[in-house]
């Protein structure tokens, strides 16, 4: 059995947001959509000021509130720990968005093809891209995944459906790491199977103090934070990015 867990090492994170960008390119998400979001936080008064960074992907909860409220079974939990959205089945009711305490669900309000960061219909460009929109569109995302062969990978598929972080299901299924983990310049993100206590990720969690976000809600997140502490009530966000989601 494999159960995937992501570990975020707050002692290493530099808040650079490379993970946010790697996610966007890999998953072809549209403008304002950040399946991975890195908070830049500040608290305390000058000169006793503390600044911290907090990467926040979907927590892929074992007891996921979003799964419970989905009326059509589009949002579901897999045995390997991933919480996914079948965009063929999603009816866009947005219950999952309301149920989730982490603010990681993004609803496709507009036509995705108009929100891929540019006008890509230039004929000279299409001669190069074959009409790809966005030009970096990833064919893996149009393929079904998992034993059930469901359409769960990538973002920006069509108007009226919900989307969120998939732990890069299309990469994980072929033995690769999620795009955010790969690009992180300081190894602040780790990913692996924690069903086996001897994997590097299992050992790393065991050897370090850790916490989970909003653990008290009983959501049983599969994202584990090492180093630092849960954000206090006193923090405020600096250098925020305008994401198209309620936070």
């Amino acid at each position: 059995m494999t159960k995937y867990t992501m570990v975020v090492d707050l002692d290493r994170c530099q808040g650079c947001r490379a993970c946010m960008e790697a996610c966007k390119i890999e998953n072809n998400t549209t403008e304002g959509v950040f399946w991975m979001y890195v908070f830049r936080l500040e608290e305390g008064e000058y000169p006793n000021t503390q600044q911290t960074y907090l990467p926040r992907p979907c927590q892929h909860c074992d007891n996921a509130p979003c799964v419970k409220v989905c009326p059509v079974g589009a949002r579901y939990k897999r045995e390997d720990g991933l919480v996914l959205t079948d965009f063929d089945r999603c009816i866009g009711c947005r219950y999952c968005e309301l149920a989730c305490p982490y603010g990681v669900n993004y609803f496709n309000w507009g036509k995705p093809e108009k929100q891929h960061y540019g006008e890509w219909d230039d004929p000279d460009l299409q001669a190069v891209t074959g009409g790809a929109n966005p030009p970096w569109s990833n064919p893996d995302l149009a393929r079904p995944h998992g034993d059930e062969q469901r359409m769960v990978a990538g973002g920006g598929h069509h108007k009226g459906v919900m989307e969120k972080c998939t732990f890069c299901v299309h990469l994980v299924e072929r033995g690769e790491l999620p795009a955010c983990v790969v690009t992180c310049p300081v190894q602040a993100l780790r990913f692996g199977n924690t069903d086996d206590p001897e994997t590097p990720v299992s050992r790393f969690i065991r050897e370090h103090g850790h916490f989970r976000l909003l653990d008290e809600l009983g959501t049983e997140p599969r994202v584990v934070y090492v180093g630092g502490q849960p954000p206090s009530d006193e923090v405020h966000e600096i250098e925020l990015v305008h994401a198209g989601v309620e936070r």
Partner: peptide, 12 residues
Amino acid sequence: FLFGGSETLASV
């Protein structure tokens, strides 16, 4: 129906 004329389909 999912992808309209988008590239993802072209590639497929």
